[in-house]
Design a protein around this nucleic acid. Structure first.
Lengths: 346, 346
DNA sequence: GTGAAAGCGCTAACAT
DNA sequence: ATGTTAGCGCTTTCAC
């Protein structure tokens, strides 16, 4: 059908024959390509009249520079990738990363890994192929072998929140052990002896760190461990039975440490009105912490510090790929709000 | 210092002389450049032995394909940009967008506009210069004039949550008017006559839509309007005085409609125990809705539908830039959870 | 299947 | 101060 083909071609050219390039602008303005490039990049060594001519041509043609070509030629992209667990979740670290990157005139483009190892790999590799200058990664899972060739090929990467296990890679993480110790000591200081811990799945690095630290605290303190440490996936039923187990029996816990913000919410949901009778210290701050009575005492990580530190370290890595690997631990802070200052009733 | 320069040069070449390209791989494998390209792109017309030779060479050299060049040559990038108000906030629509894009084999790269008109412009223009195939935008502010030349130059864009005012652009938004009507009617059905509205700043499109719809409902119903509609920026003090004004005076409101999730939380925070005495219907669902007693009755938007619809419309726009502009309104749903089913006390 | 070569749109030597 | 030209790394024609 030659008629069809012809019509398609006509439609195509009518719609938009081709995006104009610098060459088109140069022709339109009657100047050299180099001059257009200079104007586009605000090079001061162009005469004002030519600048005007070029600007006019750009507007007339609706010319838009193509960064793909620019980046290809330049070698760098001025872009940092952020591969995080879930974009659409509250993530103050990501927020700090964006701010810090903006201050350094870098663009941050983010994507979710959805806590899926395969997806993480696809996202990171895609960012590598796009030659992002560096990547900030919230690593998930245990096997990051796919990173080895990328790193060998020159990838600059900083892990946040968790280290990349088994690989010698820059990272910036919170002091989980100190956080748990602080929470535990705080409750002990308020007279508690039977303290329970309800945490996330220990296959997750931070959850494992925190649970382990808690067990060590309890052992040091000489408190009971039986039925006091509950970890696993975050499911309402599991949390409910954990709460029941912790607060039931002949020697119920008088205080609970929760392993992260989601766990805190679920535990409070289960406790309902009883939340005034048991002391609680949560790990991670959240906007819900001050919504309930009493307000939730938490061990909060310094998100802003983590985010800006991550960008700083990434920039240093990009500038000098040979620099020694840096593993930074950021202190956490206890925020006393009421729930952790309840004395034991029994 | 010639010595310094020499050492720098040596370090530079030692560290990584140059990233290998397809040419290097071709030489290493003893095949043609064309063949490498075929192997990299999984072209089936290459003999298995050659595939193996190329794969080996790729591994030996740590070769990583450069998508910048590929995209430049191909014309398309297989990438959708998402310019949202705040990446690190809960955003179920963005989540749905990511899922839908993945299903269509498109990568989503997201950035925050921080509710800043200038930043929105920078983000969108940056995505345009990177030649993203399309952009999903949560538009802020009133002046989107900067989009005109981009659209003229061929930008495919779909607005979500709010329309791009003044521009004829695809968008998919919730049915704010129906949502407010539903909430109002629901409260009337439970015997309420004096119903207050506390909402966000009416400079924001959705806030304006909802407040206007509420005023219309109240007028139709013949209920009082004086001191019943409170809109403005989300600040604790303002919310507090709004709640006080609504519930105080000689004819206090017996029910409140809140304009969005943040407002709902703030209102509930102010009400405290009194929240059991006044009926509340919130706009927007949130995880906090089932955390408090009674659980919050809300008008929820269909985030999944909005997100997947946005991607679908964007793909259609990319495929056919000349297609008629599409403005889709997605129905909202009333979720009865208790707070909205309280009868008036007075 | 190979090999050579053009070209995507840009920047930066190197002219002038 | 402005023009000419090579080349970034890839895909794709075009012979062979």
């Amino acid at each position: 059908m030659p008629m069809m083909k012809l019509m398609e071609g006509m439609l195509g050219t009518t719609r938009r024959s081709r995006r104009p390039t610098m060459v088109d602008v140069a022709r339109e303005a009657g100047v050299a390509l180099r001059t257009v490039s200079r104007v586009v990049n605000n090079d001061s060594t162009v005469g004002p009249e030519l600048v005007e001519r070029v600007r006019t041509a750009i507007a007339a043609l609706d010319y838009r520079p193509d960064e793909r070509a620019r980046h290809l030629r330049l070698g760098v992209t001025g872009t940092l990738g952020a591969a995080v667990r879930q974009l659409s979740h509250v993530n103050p670290v990501l927020r700090a990363v964006e701010r810090a990157a903006r201050a350094a005139d870098l663009m941050v483009l983010a994507a979710s890994t959805e806590d899926d190892e395969l997806l993480e790999r696809q996202v990171v590799e895609s960012m590598c192929r796009r030659r992002f200058d560096g990547i900030i990664l919230e690593p998930i899972g245990a096997d990051h072998g796919y990173l080895v060739p990328e790193l060998a090929a020159g990838l600059s990467l900083v892990a946040v929140d968790r280290p990349v296990l088994g690989l010698d890679v820059d990272c910036v993480i919170s002091d989980n052990v100190a956080g748990i110790r602080t929470a535990f000591a705080h409750l002990v200081g308020h007279g508690h002896h039977r303290i329970a811990y309800i945490g996330d799945d220990e296959r997750i690095y931070t959850a494992r760190e925190r649970a382990t630290a808690f067990r060590a605290c309890a052992a040091d303190h000489g408190g009971p461990l039986d039925g006091m440490v509950h970890t696993g996936r975050i499911e309402p039923d599991r949390i409910r039975s954990a709460v029941r187990a912790a607060l039931g029996g002949p020697a119920p816990a008088t205080a609970i440490v929760t392993g992260n913000a989601t766990i805190s919410v679920e535990v409070l949901r289960r406790l309902g009105q009883d939340s005034e009778k048991v002391a609680i210290v949560g790990f991670d701050d959240s906007e819900l912490a001050t919504l309930l009575r009493p307000d939730l005492t938490v061990v909060a990580q310094d998100d802003t510090a983590i985010g800006s530190m991550a960008v700083e370290m990434l920039r240093a890595r990009i500038a000098d790929p040979g620099r020694p690997v840096d593993r930074v631990t950021v202190p956490v802070e206890l925020l006393r709000r009421g729930s952790g200052e309840i004395s034991p009733i029994a």
